[in-house]
């Protein structure tokens, strides 16, 4: 056997996941207890709003749908396979997923460009932010590469990657399943573990404290003192 490759596979697909998950759980819990008020996306919306729309909206809708798709493949592999059993449904799903992946790329690129270009924003951008953007860009790029050049992920993920991920959960990683994948997929996977491990140290923690009740709470009317009644639409 090729010794070095074997140990590298064990390290990246057998050990790294646990290091990442340990960091994730210990880090997020510790940070929430020690620095509760740092749990924030640290929004820069009030500093710049024109480009922000084209960054924030495509990125968030894109990543939510794409991550949701990964989650469905992880939790409901049989149902996903049944859906994909008819080619037209498979093609529809893949095109939709690709579109949301592309939206994620557009949004993320706009996020990075906006931060690079605006001096005010560069001041409020930490080193951890830049590292995070690099990791996320790599993640989206390798994800799109997989979607386009290693089709059809929505059919092979549930039969190959889902058993791998569950083997991690069951504490007996089947490294071979991941190691047999093309390098774009492996890079995507390793990068995902890195993002999970780095998660507690970044503004990504806002994912855990999304104020979901905003979606169904009553509207609030904002009134301003000392000005004539607003004519703007709310």
């Amino acid at each position: 056997m090729n010794g070095i490759a074997h140990y590298l596979d064990q390290l990246l697909f057998g050990a790294l996941p646990y290091a990442a998950l340990l960091l994730f759980f210990v880090g997020t819990i510790y940070r929430y207890r020690a620095q509760t008020f740092s749990y924030s996306s640290l929004s820069s919306q009030f500093l710049e709003n024109r480009q922000h729309f084209w960054a924030l909206v495509p990125f968030h809708y894109g990543i939510l749908v794409v991550l949701g798709g990964h989650l469905v493949a992880f939790l409901l592999p049989r149902q996903l396979m049944a859906w994909n059993g008819v080619p037209v449904r498979l093609y529809g799903l893949e095109v939709t997923a690709l579109a949301f992946g592309l939206l994620t790329l557009v949004g993320l690129t706009a996020i990075v460009v906006r931060r690079l270009r605006d001096p005010k924003l560069r001041v409020v951008t930490s080193r951890a932010d830049w590292v995070l953007y690099a990791l996320l860009l790599l993640s989206v790029a390798t994800g799109l590469e997989t979607a386009i050049f290693h089709r059809w992920g929505s059919s092979w993920f549930p039969t190959t990657m889902t058993p791998y991920l569950w083997s991690i959960v069951k504490l007996s990683p089947e490294v071979g399943l991941a190691a047999a994948m093309p390098w774009a997929v492996k890079l995507h996977l390793v990068n995902a573990w890195l993002v999970i491990g780095f998660f507690p140290f970044t503004r990504l923690v806002h994912v855990l404290v999304v104020p979901n009740m905003y979606l169904w709470r009553k509207r609030q009317v904002v009134r301003w003192y000392g000005t004539k009644p607003s004519t703007a639409n709310h």
Partner: peptide
Amino acid sequence: FLLLGLGAAAVGLVAADAVWRRRLRAV
């Protein structure tokens, strides 16, 4: 496949622009 994806993504962007035109910029 790529063109279909690009087309659908473009439709998504146009839709987002239409839906949020007033909300983000007018307020």
